[in-house]
Amino acid sequence: MVKEIERAGIPVVHVCTVVPISLTVGANRIVPAIAIPHPLGNPALSKEDEKELRRSIVLRALKALETEVDGQTVFEK
């Protein structure tokens, strides 16, 4: 899906746990997530800390969307 959205002309960031699959399917902007059943959360944390964690991933995704890339890029930080 990510590739078709990109092909349609809309910049897209893929937030996912299994970065290698994302690289294989051809996403250009990739933000690594936490775990497959909870990519943007961590049930082990308190509700507040978990939301803070989620916010940091979303902010990284937004940063990726604001960044010029010339090929597949994984935004680790």
């Binding site: 746990t17 299994v18 970065v19 290698p20 690594p32 936490i34 775990a35 497959i36």
Partner: peptide
């Protein structure tokens, strides 16, 4: 024997 876990670090 090995596993198939849900985080990239585990993989």
């Amino acid at each position: 024997i090995t596993n198939e876990n849900v985080t990239l670090a585990d993989k």
